[in-house]
Amino acid sequence: MEASLRESVDGGVGVPRGLSLPRRIPGNLAIWVGILSEMSEFALMFIVYFIAKVHNPELFANGPGRLNTLAGTVNTLLLLTSSYFVAKAMVAIRRDQGRLCVRWLLGAVAAGSLYLVVKMFEYRWNAAQGIHADTNLFFTVYYYTTFNHLLHVAWGSIAVLWVAARVHLGIYTAQQHEGLEAVASYWHMIDLAWIVIFPLLYVLR
């Protein structure tokens, strides 16, 4: 009984029933235009990083060691966790568990907010170490990339808060939650960008 119930919800293959369609677009087409544009923008920043690195190997070898690895690591854990919370929220809404969905979404907003707090702490810590955007090219790339990403986390958090309110008001249901799915996809894109930023700026020497 429980197994068949689970299968009816999960499709038995790891994805929710009804989602396994080769043409299905999570959310809507508009959000994917936005997501692909943002991914292209971040790709451009990564290309700038690679070009700056090959022209300034010493700066880019020494730069990551001067950054606060703990802050970078904590923020990676926070963003991955927030993405996981959003994915769990999608499972909850499809099971018509609106209250649980709201809780997962608020968890994601909390993780996103903590990310912003850690980032502010990190920037202050940098300043105390004498690290600024004009210290050298590595730190210029670091500030340009991470501040740009920070802005995405800030407005993404507001968007998640907005859809949480709409779930709370009963506007999104198991049958109709396109807007929620669109914001969820956008939030995962923000996580994906950080997955590249973290090793480039904090790990690779």
Binding site: I25, P26, S83, Y84, A87
Partner: peptide, 8 residues
């Protein structure tokens, strides 16, 4: 997470 495995 993005659920694209079986989507578009």
């Amino acid at each position: 997470f993005m659920e694209l495995r079986h989507a578009n």
